[in-house]
């Protein structure tokens, strides 16, 4: 039933001992590295058998700052979420990195997983999170001359009031 259930093995990470972990994060191993630990952790997880970076997305926690994080992790406005998958061990893990609002810059993990190229561009396009060392960080979904990053919480949905050509008239 549960597609992402962990098999109960403890995932110690001896090399990066100060990376905050949360073993049961909806039954998936969770890691909360800082921005400095991020690339190292990703490389280690890859060496540990997570062959595929399945998903990478960003979340804007502007209006929902209070969320559960392990001790020592300061919640920031943006969070980059990476879902890794191990085909050989049939397990998943999730890496969540806090990215501050005033400096939305994070290392690209393109060097470890080339498959995140489009996903990082999407996160940049939609949230304005800059990925350094990305081969060509440009917008991917929006037009090139678009202003703003649509999925940010302070960006309006852009709803146009529905216009009726003729009023229904008196009844």
């Amino acid at each position: 039933m549960d597609a992402g259930s962990a098999d109960g093995r403890s995932i110690g990470n001896p090399q990066v001992s100060n990376v905050a972990t949360q073993p049961a994060l909806n039954a998936v191993e969770g890691y909360f590295p800082t921005r400095e630990q991020y690339l190292d952790l990703i490389n280690q997880l890859k060496a540990e058998g997570f062959e595929m970076a399945v998903d990478l997305c960003a979340v804007d926690y502007l209006s929902h700052p209070g969320r559960e994080l392990p001790e020592g992790i300061t919640p920031e406005r943006f969070e980059v979420v990476v879902n890794l998958l191990s085909l050989s061990q049939r397990r998943r893990c999730r890496v969540r990195v806090q990215v501050p609002e005033n400096d939305p810059v994070i290392t690209s993990i393109f060097s470890a997983y080339v498959g995140v190229e489009a996903m990082e561009r999407e996160a940049y396009d939609m949230f304005g999170v800059v990925f350094t060392d990305h081969p060509s960080l440009s917008r991917i979904l929006m037009p090139e001359d678009w202003e703003g990053h649509p999925l940010r919480k302070d960006y309006g949905i852009g709803r146009v009031p529905v216009q009726f050509k003729e009023g229904p008239g008196p009844r």
């Binding site: 929006m142 649509p150 960006y155 309006g156 949905i157 852009g158 709803r159 146009v160 529905v162």
Partner: peptide, 13 residues
């Protein structure tokens, strides 16, 4: 015809 259910920034209404 009118933008339909996607009344948002991305779709021409």
């Amino acid at each position: 015809s009118s933008g339909g259910m996607f009344n948002n920034y991305a779709i021409v209404q």
